[in-house]
Nucleic acid binder design. Structure first.
Length: 640
RNA sequence: GCUGUCAUAGCUCAGGGGUAGAGCACUUCAUUGGUAAUGAAGAGGUCCUGGGUUCAAUUCCCAGUGACAGCACCA
């Protein structure tokens, strides 16, 4: 006699086992039509599942976000069914819902290409139109393995073998087709709707391991209705327009060419932006008790052997060959061992701790070719690196200070929100487990002290210690690690760093590796995409263009530019033989934030007409006033 | 690195076994114009590189390089 409690607190009693379908029907025909699945005591289930005990039940309708996930997951199933119908011999593996859609990985000798999409989509629509119910079957483990092996589905069989012994194994049928699946599902294929689209193909390793065979992945997007799908596709198009590689070219910021793959040619405007960011960070570090240093580019491999990097990262290091030299030099892939060398000069006292050693360290790493991406992932980059040498009980307070600084910097650059990930010990690591226990505990304590909430990223720490990652998102939703702080008990030991304690004994410092923006290259890439080229004035590489209407105003325009430059603003004159409309268009397309229009009238009255990027209105101001206004706006946030 | 796609003018791209095109950008001339394209003329390409097939290759085939998407990697 189950008593069902509904979300509004009301209860309904039934005479025996009931399905969600029964309950929804008992509540009303509208709900019976709308209910796609249900949540029983907090767990999502098929609506056709029976309930035999008292339970709280909530129905999922198309309006719920949970429905979107079901739609995506079910679309993946239909995709798999369609593919197997059209391409016999293709094995299925897994097909989860993901942000904005789903994918399915297939094993097939010949990978799928987008040319296959029309046929597959047509078949999918056919399966959806057939409105076949999804039905759940519980099956014994050995039977399941035998069933999938008999079909030649060895990947599925492998998955079942690796499931925990106590897990219930279920199969979902849709017509004659079935798949191993935990569920839950919608009622029928028709519940999926038609707002889906296959997007792209890709290779993906079986179980995410590059030692395994590569599968053929099909990505798709799926939504509740056509309107949502159209909005998503439009958003993708808009995201493409903010791609930093495209805007970088349009704004003449940088380029990359074949002779220096993974390295950036910074053009004048891009370098101006870079310098603005660098000067800002330098001021913030100076004001936060950091000491800036500079260490060598080329360092003997002996140092990397000691630090452990040679062993682990040799394949990713650039080696410099020198004639008549026995030694092997490596371009530094990171700065930490060099900073330890500075720390080790002379005897350090506990009184000097925490010692915060900063460097805009230029590093080189031979990144795999497939990893390179514009200026976001490169082979030559500069970190806003620093190492804090401190005692174990200073870890928490230094982390709190760091997080405060990072939050303030991100806010100044316009990033109000960002994700934090806590990456703990990786399988391959240096240092004993008790050291890792201490390091992880210290970082967790520090997070609590700093009020940082994080997502756990198991096994993703550095080889020498656990880390926090501060993640920013690019225009098309890809996440990039920018800031980080890492607790390291290992390198000071390996490189023999020590200080004199209050008791006049020797002790090892702890090293906190930390970066706020990570690499200038990546961060500037993210900045470009975040602002879509429309930078706040303090970051804009060209802050104003003075455009003339008639050549009689040329002399005055030059005078205005000189006055703007004297006030520290990046200004250019446009006295070209063009109509003002063309000049406005040209500079607007190049993301110039302010166009100061001067004609005869302005020259006579010694005013300027300011036109803001994207705005249609103009503001006429006396020259001195305009300069004061722009100067104030162009002041970096930390100097206001 | 792996899978797939791609590589033609500065940019965006069309074309195609008989050495090449558009729009924008660029240069010149005319035009001095009031807030997102004034008009005309001109210049510009070893069709990524190297091999092969062919009477003939930028086009077809193979390899390399690079770019793009995803996967793997990211100290």
């Amino acid at each position: 006699m189950p008593v069902i409690t509904l979300p509004d607190g009301s209860t309904r009693q039934f005479d025996g086992a009931v399905t969600g379908t029964d309950i929804a029907a008992a509540i009303g025909p509208g709900l019976a039509r709308a209910a796609l699945a249900m949540v029983v005591n907090g767990a999502e289930q098929d609506i056709a599942r029976e309930i035999t005990e008292d339970a709280s039940v909530k129905f999922i309708t198309r309006k719920d976000d949970a429905a979107l996930e079901l739609i995506r997951h079910d679309t993946a199933h239909v995709l798999a069914a369609a593919v197997q119908a059209l391409f016999p011999g293709t094995q299925v593996t897994i097909g989860p819902s993901i942000e904005n859609g789903f994918y399915y990985d297939f094993a097939r000798d010949e990978p799928f290409t987008p040319d296959d999409f029309p046929a597959i989509e047509a078949k999918m629509r056919e399966l959806i139109a057939a409105n076949t119910p999804f039905t759940r079957e519980v099956i014994a483990r050995d039977d399941a393995i035998a069933l999938f092996e008999s079909k030649g589905e060895r990947f599925k069989a492998e998955l079942i073998r690796d499931l925990p012994a106590d897990q219930t194994i279920t199969i979902y049928h849709q017509g004659g087709w079935f798949d191993l699946c935990r569920g839950p599902h919608l009622r029928t294929t028709g519940d999926i709707g038609t707002a889906f689209k296959l997007m792209k193909t890709a290779g993906a390793y079986w179980r995410g391991d590059s030692k395994n065979p590569m599968l053929s992945r099909i990505y798709g997007t799926a939504w509740r209705d056509q309107k949502e799908l159209d909005a998503y596709l439009l958003q993708l198009e808009e995201a493409e327009r903010r791609d930093h590689r495209r805007i970088g070219r349009e704004m003449d910021l940088f380029h990359i060419q074949e002779e220096a793959v993974g390295s950036i040619f910074w053009h004048q405007k891009g370098w101006k932006l870079y310098r603005t960011v660098e000067s800002y960070i330098r001021r913030r570090l100076d004001a936060s008790g950091y000491e800036e240093v500079r260490t060598p580019q080329l360092v003997d491999r002996k140092l990397w052997e000691k630090s452990g990097h040679w062993d682990k990262y040799r394949k990713h290091m650039f080696i410099a060959e020198v004639v008549d030299e026995e030694s092997t030099l490596a371009l530094k892939p990171m700065n930490c061992p060099c900073h330890v060398q500075i720390f080790k000069q002379g005897l350090r006292s506990y009184r000097q701790l925490p010692l915060r050693m900063a460097e805009f360290g230029a590093c080189h790493r031979f990144e795999p070719s497939g990893a390179l991406h514009g200026i976001m992932r490169v082979r030559a980059f500069t970190q806003d690196d620093a190492h804090i040498f401190c005692t174990e009980d200073q870890i928490a307070s230094e982390t709190v200070k760091f997080v405060e600084l990072l939050e303030s910097v991100y806010k100044d650059f316009g990033f109000e929100s960002f994700a934090v990930k806590f990456s703990d010990r990786p399988a391959e690591r240096a240092g004993a487990d008790d050291v890792w226990d201490r390091a992880e505990a210290a970082l967790k304590t520090a997070c609590e002290a700093a009020g940082v909430s994080y997502e756990l990223n198991p096994g993703e720490g550095a080889f020498y210690g656990p880390k926090l990652e501060f993640v920013l998102r690019d225009a098309i939703g890809r996440d990039w690690q920018c800031g980080t702080i890492q607790v390291d008990f290992v390198l000071p030991e390996r490189l023999d760093a020590e200080y004199v304690t209050a008791e006049s004994t020797r002790a090892r410092p702890v090293m906190l590796h930390r970066a706020i923006i990570g690499s200038f290259e990546r961060f500037i890439g993210i900045l470009i995409e975040n602002y879509a080229g429309r930078f706040p004035l303090w970051l804009a590489p060209t802050q104003a263009v003075v455009a003339t209407i008639v050549s009689d105003a040329d002399a005055y325009a030059e005078e205005v530019v000189a006055a703007l430059r004297a006030a520290g603003l990046a200004a250019e004159a446009d006295v070209s033989n063009q109509k003002i409309n063309a000049k406005i268009r040209d500079h607007s397309l190049h993301y110039v934030p302010n166009i100061l229009v001067v004609g005869r009238k302005e020259a006579e009255e010694r005013t300027v007409a300011i036109r803001r990027l994207g705005g249609a209105a103009q503001q006429i101001l006396p020259l001195a006033e305009a300069i004061a206004l722009l100067k104030a706006e162009a002041t970096p946030p930390d100097l206001r």
